[in-house]
Design a protein around this nucleic acid. Structure first.
Lengths: 129, 129
DNA sequence: GCGATAACGATAACGATTATCATTTCACCC
DNA sequence: GGGTGAAATGATAATCGTTATCGTTATCGC
């Protein structure tokens, strides 16, 4: 059972009060600037707890790199979070719709990345068993 | 002018010889196991060089997290690589096509993430100026 | 109030990546 | 074929975001 402590309430209020996308460091700074006393570890724990409770959402930005052969057409990736399998797929219509969506916002696209997470057919089977 | 040294050639051969998605650590281990003498820093530099030369491709898996309010419908993100602006968008057709693509591969999706990188309208304007 | 448990905060540890720097290799020129 | 300068190497230190540790503190149910 998770507790909604004063620190976590402060994190939640901060995030709910804006439309921004916060990282842990920005949260600590904002709270400390506002006079609160809170440590970075508490913020990490609080963010994780609030997320599992569904009170906030998160996105994961790209960081960890993996390299592959260049002699392939563009494609995106499905990753099995159970066994690590990386499956490739491509879909022309999705690509076109992305370009259109970017154009509508005035974005000039330089790249994109679509990653789908889930269970591959093998792992899905084993989960049922 | 970049050189295609013996070390970089070895990295390139390794990646070209397989269909896998390698991270730097796996590359060092594979090369050292194969009897080569190469350091981790060289592998990082080699991978980056080969990528800028277009000889290999890379994907960036999720890592760095950012948090946002939970009271929104599902959406994806466009990120301006120049000023850091994060713009949200959603597109039902893209969502549906993703689900269909996953189903075709036998994947049971638990989540996905579409991130588009580029220049926001403001930064795109300034680049031209 | 008391005991169990969850959360706290400071800080150490961690893993991936990048920077530093002295040394080595390569391409090119005379 | 030796000399020169740019680029690459490798060992290692440094960095960054994050997680683990651990002793202390707060909270909940009784």
């Amino acid at each position: 059972m998770q507790r909604l402590t004063a620190q976590r309430q402060a994190i939640l209020d901060l995030i709910n009060a804006s439309n921004r996308h916060w990282d842990a460091d920005e949260v600590v700074r904002a709270l400390v600037d506002a006079g609160a006393s809170i440590g970075i570890a508490t913020v990490y724990r609080g963010l994780a707890a609030l997320e599992t409770q569904g009170l906030i959402d998160s996105i994961q930005l790209a960081d960890k790199k993996r390299y592959e052969r260049a002699d392939k057409a563009h494609h995106d990736h499905m990753i099995c979070t159970s066994c690590g399998l990386i499956e490739e797929f491509s879909h022309d219509t999705i690509e076109e719709l992305q370009l259109a969506a970017a154009a509508k916002k005035g974005f000039r696209l330089t790249g994109h990345q679509l990653v789908m997470f889930g269970y591959c057919s093998q792992c899905a089977k084993e989960l049922k068993a």
